[in-house]
């Protein structure tokens, strides 16, 4: 994103403890809606947490559950997926397929002991910069209250 966002985050990070700054959050965003929405939040200089690493996807239909499993295995403390609102998919129905997969994954992650808050999925359109800022802030707050996933995680990165 842009420098302004980072500076705003810098303040937020200083206000929290080092542990929170260490949180590793990953967001998978679809190219057409949510990534553009996040970009809009950035260019509009909305406050966003800085622990979130954004990975751009062509469509949430590309969202292989393995990407989430791997993110947690490599040490992510939370994973967020965001795509176009149902009905708005650039490819007509990618997010409908994704929705089934992601909901099932969410339930299976709970079986493994990964709290449902650690894996969230939502819909943000290209014009919803403010909504993105809210979503990512709420998500980060959720994970901050849970803390690091820890070494006993389902494949946590050992650290």
């Amino acid at each position: 994103m842009n420098g302004e966002t980072d500076r705003a985050d810098g303040g937020a990070v200083n206000a929290t403890d080092a542990d929170r700054a260490d949180l590793k959050l990953v967001a998978f965003l679809c190219n057409w809606c949510s990534y553009a929405g996040a970009d809009m939040a950035g260019t509009s200089r909305m406050l966003q947490p800085s622990q979130v690493r954004i990975i751009r996807l062509p469509c949430t239909g590309r969202m292989d559950p393995l990407l989430v499993l791997k993110a947690f295995q490599e040490g992510a403390d939370g994973v967020l997926v965001s795509g176009c609102h149902p009905g708005d998919c650039h490819y007509n129905d990618g997010n409908y397929y994704a929705r089934r997969r992601l909901e099932l994954l969410k339930r299976m992650l709970a079986v493994r002991g990964i709290e449902p808050e650690r894996f969230q999925y939502t819909w943000v359109s290209a014009s919803e910069g403010a909504r993105w800022a809210d979503v990512v802030q709420a998500f980060t707050t959720d994970i901050e209250s849970l803390g690091r996933l820890g070494a006993t995680v389902a494949g946590g990165g050992g650290g």
């Binding site: 709290e115 820890g150 006993t152 389902a154």
Partner: peptide, 14 residues
């Protein structure tokens, strides 16, 4: 499994 807290579930599977 039902009775385990998330962290305990993770430890169980580990």
């Amino acid at each position: 499994l039902e009775d385990l807290a998330p962290a305990e579930r993770r430890a169980f599977w580990r």
